[in-house]
């Protein structure tokens, strides 16, 4: 049984969402294509440069996020995907959805960033979609994903159909602009301010995009991966513990 999965009256039967490990819910019907490569991992045990006696120094692995899935996705995922496809086609931008990822029983729609505001409006207003609530909006920084460094992730909830989807858009670091969805979801106001504050994503059309958590004159955007954690070494009984970001990390 999938804990936490949709179980409302319109929720798909459990079979459709059954999953073990990182397999897709509908089993073999979903064929994974290559996922987004977000980085590479070299060596092991956090040892860098010379001095690696582990024998793993030459090991290189790609870090890949779960790849696009092809229909059928299983359960109500197909209904939502088709309804969204239909709605975007009717509105004249059927290329808005770049890809669909079904992973661990959750569905993610990757949307072209310039279409985000229109897609959000469709997702809220279409009869068969009805995602009335924007549960969450935040950012993720993938520094190694060239030209798609900054991701904005929206979690949408449909109370009518008891469904949840994730919408993700990506923007390059050089042009960190994403359309604001405040006009559709007023709750996005503070969420977008927070994402701007922490990642430097500029939400075009936001009524007042200012910092929210950090002081107004704070330099930099703290949640970005290139922003250091900071901290000082701590001395205790003669030994010194380095700050967390300078301790050994396992790769």
């Amino acid at each position: 049984m999938t804990q936490g999965g949709p179980k409302g009256p319109d929720a798909p039967d459990d079979k459709g969402l059954e999953h073990t490990g990182t397999q897709d819910p509908s089993g073999d019907s979903v064929r994974e294509t290559g996922g987004e490569v977000v980085g590479t991992r070299q060596g092991m045990f956090g040892v860098r440069g010379t001095g690696d006696t582990s024998g793993y120094g030459g090991l290189t692995r790609q870090v890949t996020m779960p790849g696009s899935s092809t229909p059928p996705f299983g359960g109500w995922f197909d209904e939502v995907a088709q309804a969204l496809q239909q709605a975007t086609a009717d509105a004249g931008f059927d290329d808005a959805v770049e890809g669909v990822v079904v992973h661990v029983g959750e569905i993610t729609f990757h949307v072209k960033r310039e279409r985000l505001a229109e897609v959000a409006r469709l997702l809220r207003d279409s009869e068969s979609l009805r995602f009335e609530v924007l549960a969450s909006l935040s950012g993720v920084h993938y520094p190694d994903e060239t030209n798609r460094e900054l991701h904005v992730v929206l979690h949408l909830l449909s109370m009518t159909h008891n469904r949840r989807i994730r919408v993700e858009v990506a923007a390059p670091d050089a042009d960190p602009h994403v359309p604001s969805v405040v006009a559709t979801y007023p709750t996005a106001d503070w969420h977008e301010r927070e994402t701007f504050d922490f990642f430097g994503v500029v939400f075009d059309g936001h009524p007042g995009l200012t910092r929210i958590e950090m002081p107004d004159d704070w330099p930099g955007h703290p949640q970005r991966k290139d922003y250091p954690l900071g901290g000082i070494p701590v001395e205790y009984k003669g030994a010194t513990v380095p700050p967390p970001d300078e301790r050994r990390s396992y790769n």
């Binding site: 990182t22 991992r41 959750e106 979690h155 396992y250």
Partner: peptide
């Protein structure tokens, strides 16, 4: 394993969810 998950729960104040992203690391 690499991927992202969001599991919302009903906290005393409403929907509390953690959007957790993993790149397959520790």
């Amino acid at each position: 394993p690499a991927g992202q998950a969001y599991v919302p729960i009903e906290s005393p104040r409403g929907e509390l969810g953690a959007h957790v992203v993993s790149d397959g690391g520790t």
